[in-house]
Amino acid sequence: MALDYMYTITKKKSLANSIYLMDVKAPRVAKNCYPGQFVIIKMDEKGERIPLTICDYDREEGTVTIVFQAIGSSTQLMAQYEEGEAFRDFTGPLGHRSELIDMPREELKKKNILFVAGGVGAAPVYPQVKWMKENGYDVDCIIGARNKELIILEDEMKAVAKNVYITTDDGTYGFHGNVNDCIKDLVNHQGKKYDLVIAIGPMIMMKFVCILTKELGIKTIVSMNPVMVDGTGMCGACRLTIGNEVKFACVDGPEFDGHLVNFDEAMKRLQMYKTAEGKKALRQKEGDTHHHKGCECHEE
């Protein structure tokens, strides 16, 4: 790897099977970022531009924390990076900061807020909950995952949220059921009242949370993760239908009113490069092209 890359990984931690946390040195980003925003990482000369939500930041140290799930060829490659190594590019912060930060304090005080984190979505939820705590607001938080192994950031979340509810699809830990079952339980059986839900996780989860909260009449904010290229508004790859309007997630979002999002369209769009990328991964396995680890030949 070229030594002059400047975005050094100062910490790496495995949070769960195939979910990693990294602190990356990026002083400009750390100085001006807020919860709700994201960065774009390009690992090396030939890498993709990969969008990841900002999960924490240390303005003094000049570091930004990312948490990612190794699901495809790029994120799997990223998982191979170790402390002390560096990324070629780390751009941000991108997108708007969380709406909560700009809400009038009086209004925010009156609100009962429930955060809903699905899987790796706990990572982007965490800085928002932390911000709320630091500014003196108590909130509830659900962390849901398929099984116990995939629950991340539980202790961190407990330190900043008033109540943390864990739920697993297979019942191996906490409440038995998906996040919607858990929301229903809280509202219908435990007498909880919420005026605002912030749901972040896989699109399919956000879709179903929104269907439920619409029935329950609770305003819901979601954080959308469509395919992106530049992240600055130039390409239109990230477009979504919100209400009757087309919006660009990178400049208009990534957070939107969940009751207005056309999730079915967004989920189809997310599949767009899956096949192309799959074919490519195959080619790489077969040895047509490959790069990084073990092959330094592409780096000048």
């Binding site: 030939k46 890498g47 993709e48 531009r49 060829s73 790029s74 290229v229 490069y273 192309a276 990328e277 490519k280 080619r283 047509d288 092209t289 790069h291 592409h298």
Partner: peptide, 12 residues
């Protein structure tokens, strides 16, 4: 992103 060159990661 040089998608036409298969040694780059970006698909088209």
């Amino acid at each position: 992103m040089k998608a036409y060159d298969t040694s780059y990661d970006t698909p088209i």
